[in-house]
């Protein structure tokens, strides 16, 4: 035993000894976590949202490791040093621990400060990351600069985006049993089963559904927003480098829910523009038949009709065009 761990009367200074053990283990634990685990924590770093959420998770873990080790060190130390067979009358065991003001105040202050810091840190992250990739509903509380302008322009077909423009790119996500499709109002409102977005761009995902509740989860982008019929649920993210991501439905939605996924891509801005303009031209005939771009489309429960269009042509009505000659 060193002098550091004993007082002037030669008695072991347990608190100091536990503190030294705890600090050493915590530093080692945090360093090991930072080197070997932190870089691989999901969802990765494909978007700013993902990167910041990875950072947040890592900060939480690096604070949790000392807390966990603090409990383990105290428990282990107590079992070893103050076990009944060794020295049950030690200063920190039994009644002595229950009346130790220093221990009690330290515990309350340290845990309170930790919790308050984490609450403030989490709130700061949500606000600065514009909802942190989560769906904020139709009126986002935390929208990035330029988002409102881009969204308003998208509704009237005047949204613009080009490489280097720094404009927010609105993308509509339409859930239906059992696939997501995507509309690009900036490129004529074409619809595609593929989700491709440009790198280094702020994306405004506008998520809705044509039938039941789905949930759009672009995993590596760290975007997750419920798809409710009749609701435009907006989620923001800022893409970084090119890469692939997986989209899954994360709301149980029927028999093929497990198959409701697709791959998405973050492409370079030039490649994205090329894909978007090519697809816009290739899909032009079908885009002309789609309803005007809107934030929501109101289906009804009337079988195969569904009201995606104005519900003036009811297939079960006697006064509409069904039964007319098939196009030759």
């Amino acid at each position: 035993m060193t002098n550091q761990s004993t007082n002037s009367t030669g008695q072991v200074h347990h608190l100091r000894r536990m503190t030294i053990i705890w600090v050493v283990l915590s530093v080692v634990g945090d360093v090991l976590f930072s080197i070997f685990v932190a870089p691989h924590v999901p969802p990765g770093r494909l978007s700013e949202t993902a990167a910041n959420n990875q950072n947040t998770f890592n900060v939480l873990m690096e604070m949790a490791i000392p807390v966990l080790l603090g409990v383990w060190v105290y428990l282990s130390y107590s079992l070893i040093v103050w076990g009944d067979k060794r020295n049950a009358s030690a200063a920190f065991s039994g009644a002595a621990a229950r009346t130790n003001k220093t221990a009690q105040v330290s515990w309350i202050v340290i845990t309170s400060v930790t919790i308050l810091f984490l609450a403030a840190y989490g709130s700061f992250a949500v606000i600065t990351e514009h909802g942190s990739g989560g769906g904020e509903g139709p009126n986002p509380a935390w929208a990035p600069a330029g988002a409102l302008k881009a969204e308003t322009a998208a509704l009237v077909g005047k949204a613009t985006w080009s490489p280097g423009s720094k404009n927010v790119l609105p993308v509509q996500v339409i859930g239906q049993q059992w696939k997501f499709t995507y509309r690009y109002p900036t490129f004529g409102g074409f619809e595609s089963p593929q989700l491709i977005v440009p790198a280094d761009t702020t994306i405004a995902f506008n998520v809705t559904s044509l039938d039941v509740i789905h949930s759009f989860w672009a995993y590596q982008l760290d975007v997750k927003a419920d798809a409710n019929p009749g609701v435009n649920d907006v989620a923001f993210t800022e893409t970084k480098n090119p890469g692939n991501f997986i989209v899954r439905c994360s709301e149980l939605c029927g028999i093929w829910h497990g198959s409701m996924y697709n791959s998405g891509k973050v492409e370079s801005q030039a490649d994205f523009e090329n894909w978007a303009t090519t697809t816009e031209a290739a899909n032009a005939a079908n885009t002309a038949l789609l309803p005007a771009f809107a934030w929501t489309y109101t289906p009804d429960a009337n079988g195969a009709d569904g009201g995606y269009y104005n519900d003036t042509n009811d297939p079960y009505s006697t006064v509409e065009t069904y039964g007319s000659k098939q196009p030759s």
Binding site: T181, P193, D211, L289, L290, D305, G307, Y308, Y322
Partner: peptide, 15 residues
Amino acid sequence: DSGSPLRNQEWGQVQ
């Protein structure tokens, strides 16, 4: 079977 307008005309396109 008979038909009707699609809930989503996206499926009217051969892909």
